[in-house]
Write a protein that binds this DNA or RNA. Structure first.
Lengths: 227, 227
DNA sequence: GAGTAATGTTACAGATTTGTTAAATATTTA
DNA sequence: TAAATATTTAACAAATCTGTAACATTACTC
């Protein structure tokens, strides 16, 4: 399984060179040349590593870095900053915002590659966390148990999977089709209404006396874990 | 059972901060600010994990790492190296000597903690102690005897292995495939339902009048040692 | 080599989970 | 407000999963 690298870079020539070389090395590459877009894309796709240009038209790389490092969900994704010469003084500042590494343009690709490999080696095993929480809801993937306000809750296998998936990105709305794809898998012979039923069952299970409901219905769009 | 972490660090402020925070998390902490002493101490105490500063007055961290990784007795203990900024170029070299992870100072404690947990989880099962207990169940690997409430229990070889494996991480749910892989070994010609039968037999053996059942079935997932 | 113990397989009963349907509610639109 | 649209939920049949007894096979012991 090859790693997924996200490149944020607005200089087209550099971007294509990077993409080409990285893909040749077997990495999956996504990219964006726009800061805001990159930010949401990274949160959604959760790549294994981010290459981040220092200067972007709308949002500086250092800001992106800051935002990413403040977000529990993505803070463990390593970031390599790409800085131009003139900005050398800011390196320290860059590292302090949490970037794992940096390189000065123009850079040697072999060197970049070495750094990427080294970073991936140490961070890869961390990617899946054994525990996830959302408000008073907790899921322990090791024992496959679910708790609400410290009290254990019993879920059927499908409900467990559903919650396991939803909790990865709370508040994000998934369509029934997305849920079928991710929770049910390739089994395409399932009506999309079926999702409703399982959502209902999950709701009933995780519902507790005097606690807020945790699953939101977004009419004509889907569902999300959110109160 | 909390893990034992050994910190090798000669900067007093960092050392006390680490010690304080780790203990607050429930870890048992030992430390040394001297390379030679650390080396022998680690070999003697066999901690579950080592935090190792790169620079020490008498013996460099990288040397310590090398020595530890060459010693059969302790080579399985994971090491996290703590490197200062200026030494970044040596990172690769550091990893090559066998350190499992490294962090650059100054580091965020939450991140360090996450890495520690992740490493412990990965490595823990490899560290077999002579004796393991879970509630009133005890297994003595030296004599290969099993006790429940002080009373000896006779297990067949496969049941013993199964329990021996399960007790390494109580509460963790293992799939039938995982159990086959770890308990049966490479013998791929075994049906996964066979696991069920052995689980049943193990249950019957370790079951005692008026004691809780100790093996949990997680439907469509597998089994765990837990009451 | 006979007898004993351990292991793997199968079959089947019982339990749980799942998908579908349809009727009841809820929400939006015209 | 009525009609149109979307969601919730109960009920039920079908599918799936598990526990265990029984038996066949293999490995071990004396």
């Amino acid at each position: 399984m090859s790693a997924h690298i996200f490149v944020v870079e607005d200089e087209k020539p550099i971007l294509s060179l990077l993409t080409y070389n990285l893909q040749k090395e077997g990495y999956k590459v996504s990219s964006s040349s726009n800061g805001e877009e990159a930010l949401s894309s990274i949160k959604e796709k959760k790549p294994d590593l981010v290459l981040l240009d220092w200067m972007l038209p709308d949002l500086s790389g250092i800001k992106i870095c800051q935002y990413l490092k403040q977000d529990e969900k993505v803070k463990n994704i390593p970031i390599i900053m790409l800085t131009a010469k003139g900005e050398e003084e800011d390196k320290v500042k860059g590292l302090n915002t949490g970037a794992e590494d940096y390189m000065t343009k123009p850079f040697s690709f072999p060197e970049l590659l070495a750094r990427i490999k080294s970073l991936l080696k140490r961070v890869k095993p961390n990617i899946v966390s054994e525990e996830a929480t959302y408000l008073d809801l907790k899921i322990d993937r090791e024992s496959m148990k679910v708790f609400r306000k410290e009290k254990e809750i019993t879920l059927g296998p499908k409900e467990y999977k559903l919650l396991d998936f939803l909790i990865k990105q709370p508040k994000r709305v998934y369509s029934r089709e997305q849920l079928l794809e991710h929770v049910w898998g390739d089994d395409i012979n399932v009506e999309s209404r079926t999702v409703d039923v399982h959502i209902t069952r999950l709701r009933q299970s995780i519902n507790i006396e005097g606690a807020k409901p945790l699953i939101r219905t977004v009419r004509s769009a889907g569902y999300s874990l959110e109160n």
